[in-house]
Nucleic acid binder design. Structure first.
Lengths: 183, 183
DNA sequence: CTGAAATGGTTGACGTGTCAACTGATGCCG
DNA sequence: CGGCATCAGTTGACACGTCAACCATTTCAG
């Protein structure tokens, strides 16, 4: 999409002048190469989630985020996780997760149980129906992942992509909540 | 984030069995390397837009999408674009754009004019206030782009990223509405 | 052991995106 | 030129995420 920065080559100069006289420090504008990479990245970041959502929505009436919640629970011991832990693993806020889990609970895919050890906490548990739904949905999702991303790239590019995203996540996810498990 | 597929190594087998007996064809599961790249990509795609939004929201009360709309208009001839053209360049649906432009118009950043040539069409025009806002906002946005992405990568990785995103967009944006101008 | 602060989670209001329905204007076929 | 399909755009209802407020429990200082 198009974005942002890449316009205003004219504005660039003016903006920096303004900035220099104000509180902002000078900011180096992006080179053409950097600009193309930047625009490409934000375009992908805009379009990819929408595609994943629409595929999952169509096939299983699930958001990509719903899917991730089910997926995280599916590999947890007892298929159970505390809300806070689940929120970290899905990099969601607690309110968001709470709403989502409530909807999933209504559909019978997840159940909420008070945590025995800590009366404040809630455990989310993947039901058999939730597990079956996930199992039924996974192949289509993987297929989409292949069609849109993996199979479009060379093996070398896949490796590059892993290195690049890994570097970016050190900034985007400093606490490293997401990838801890996968290292 | 986290996602999806990367769970259910157990489910993988089951899912594919199910699939084989159903309408789905077999889907090759992802290799560990592919999985890491995939999870990395969707994590970035989830976190990056949120960061851009929050920076722009803080500094100028703009969505990243708002910013893109202003940016697109800023480089158009007469700083004017028809709604449809603007929608394509921002890869937005027309209803979404219509809502956004309405809000921007209320704030005086954009104005809507009937198109002289075609009575059905509407022209969106960037006002002076909109231009000034954009110019004032651009440096901070570029700085964010550098901090989160560009300056985190080597020059070589930036080049790789450009190639990778370019390949992905052939699938994600087949009509190539976004990048036409940037080639 | 008592009270203040921190933790875990839920709820409700608000903003934004999506989808379907709708209005008007254009183009085109006969 | 009459009528139908298409195009351009808007609107309204609904779904989801965010934020701030809130409640209950736990922790810890004194």
């Amino acid at each position: 999409m198009t974005t942002s920065t890449h316009d205003v080559p004219a504005a660039a100069g003016r903006a920096c002048d303004v900035a220099a006289s104000g509180e902002q420090q000078d900011v180096a504008w992006l080179t053409p190469d950097q600009l193309r990479a930047w625009i490409g990245l934000i375009s992908v970041a805009e379009l990819l989630p929408a595609r994943l959502d629409s595929q999952l929505q169509r096939d299983a009436d699930l958001t990509h985020f719903d899917y991730q919640v089910l997926a995280m629970l599916s590999e947890a011991p007892e298929r159970t996780l505390r809300m806070t832990g689940l929120a970290q693993r899905t990099s969601a806020t607690l309110p968001r997760l709470s709403h989502v889990v409530k909807r999933l609970e209504v559909r019978g895919l997840v159940e909420r149980l008070p945590c025995p050890g800590d009366a404040r906490a809630t455990n989310a548990h993947l039901t058999d129906l939730g597990w079956d739904t996930l199992v039924r949905t996974a192949p289509g999702h993987v297929r989409t992942a292949r069609e849109l991303v993996i199979d479009v790239l060379t093996d070398e590019q896949v490796a590059q992509l892993e290195a690049i995203t890994s570097a970016l996540l050190t900034r985007l996810d400093p606490e490293d909540r997401l990838l801890r498990r996968n290292r």
